[in-house]
């Protein structure tokens, strides 16, 4: 795996999802997602070590409603970022998400603003955020925190975009060319920094983290 063995200490497992809009079928979907994924929500956050370097780590659980972002996912990410500021640690987020969660309506939409705002505070504190985009990352997650990394990394062939290909087809009657929205397409259009295979991810992250550790900067900038 990516983090050092037994180094992951999960946070905020006690945040439970409600059904604020009384949305048709949402409670059933949540139960189903819980059974399918074994987790309580679509993102896990916590403290981890990568080659001995402490980081705040978050990653989506794709089996929980496609890692979509509702109130709890947004809140967990924000709390993780705020704790990173308190602990003066870098943040690494692995995204796999269909976007904002429809079933929580406007509350989901504003999680985009809320997570982005928290990253603003992180940046102000000169702390690193590495965003890793895995297959697939779309919608409200692409249009918020996942695109705001100081460094954007994607996995090979991962599909990354704002609007999903099916929706583009349906609404615009536009068939996307082969290879559109892949990590390679995104890199070619200047939208991501690096394409890294999962096997290499740990060592690439470790190098990047090391070069951003406190104390290694040129003194005058501190």
């Amino acid at each position: 795996m990516l983090a050092d063995e037994n180094s992951f200490e999960e946070w905020d497992t006690e945040l439970l999802t409600l059904d604020p809009l009384d949305f048709p079928g949402y409670e059933g979907k949540l139960l189903e997602a819980h059974e399918k994924s074994g987790t309580t929500e679509g993102v896990l956050t916590g403290l981890a070590k990568i080659e001995g370097i402490s980081v705040v780590l978050a990653f989506n659980e794709a089996n929980f409603m496609m890692g979509s972002m509702g109130s709890v996912v947004g809140e967990k990410i924000v709390r993780a970022i705020e704790r990173a500021i308190d602990l003066r640690l870098p943040v690494v987020i692995f995204s796999t998400s269909g976007g904002a969660r429809m079933q929580e309506g406007i509350l989901s939409l504003y999680q985009m603003a809320k997570t982005s705002a928290a990253l603003g505070k992180l940046a102000e504190n000169h702390l690193l955020f590495i965003s890793v985009l895995t297959d697939p990352t779309f919608g409200g997650v692409t249009a918020s925190y996942a695109s705001l990394g100081d460094i954007l990394i994607a996995e090979p062939n991962a599909l990354i975009g704002f609007t999903g290909p099916r929706v583009i087809m349906q609404t615009m009657r536009q068939e996307l060319p082969t290879g559109a929205q892949t990590a390679e397409f995104n890199q070619e259009h200047g939208l991501i920094d690096l394409i890294v295979q999962r096997a290499e991810m740990r060592s690439v992250l470790a190098r990047l983290l090391r070069y951003h550790q406190e104390g290694v900067q040129y003194a005058a900038t501190v």
Binding site: E14, L16, T17, V72, V78, E104, Q111, A113, K114, A117
Partner: peptide, 10 residues
């Protein structure tokens, strides 16, 4: 922004 969202904390 921080206050937007509905969840339960136990």
């Amino acid at each position: 922004l921080r206050a937007i969202g509905v969840y339960q904390e136990i």
